[in-house]
């Protein structure tokens, strides 16, 4: 098996994950649907995961992958609470458009 770590430089993984992260950022900026914004955040978390696993694999260092588990755990908890909040918002104002949420302003 050709060693992938020699043929693909680590920096390409860094670029890939930076690209995914920025796509997530753009998603947060241009969409107004709270759920899609939430999904963009998940995308950003995943790009960080990718970076951690890549570094861990290239440096032969297990803790990087352990951190990925913790990020997944936090993401799962975040999704549970976040979706509950979105459901509450939807119940109260019958929309998940974040522009409508500006009503919260004093």
């Amino acid at each position: 098996m050709p060693n992938i770590f020699q043929t693909v430089p680590l920096i390409h993984f860094v670029y890939l994950s930076a690209l995914l992260f920025c796509i997530g950022v753009v998603g947060v900026l241009i969409r107004r649907n709270a759920i899609i914004i939430f999904m963009s955040i998940e995308l950003m978390l995943n790009s960080v995961n990718l970076l951690l696993v890549a570094f861990s694999a290239y440096r032969q260092d297990p803790p990087g992958q352990i951190f990925v588990f913790f990020i997944m755990a936090v993401a799962a908890a975040e999704v549970a609470v976040g979706l509950a909040i979105i459901i509450m918002i939807y119940r109260n104002i019958r929309t998940v458009d974040i522009n409508e949420l500006s009503r919260l302003k004093g």
Partner: peptide, 16 residues
């Protein structure tokens, strides 16, 4: 992390 999960479960149930 496991405690965090417990809190998240309870929080989600209470919220929703």
């Amino acid at each position: 992390a496991s405690v965090l999960f417990l809190v998240a479960i309870v929080g989600a149930v209470i919220l929703a």
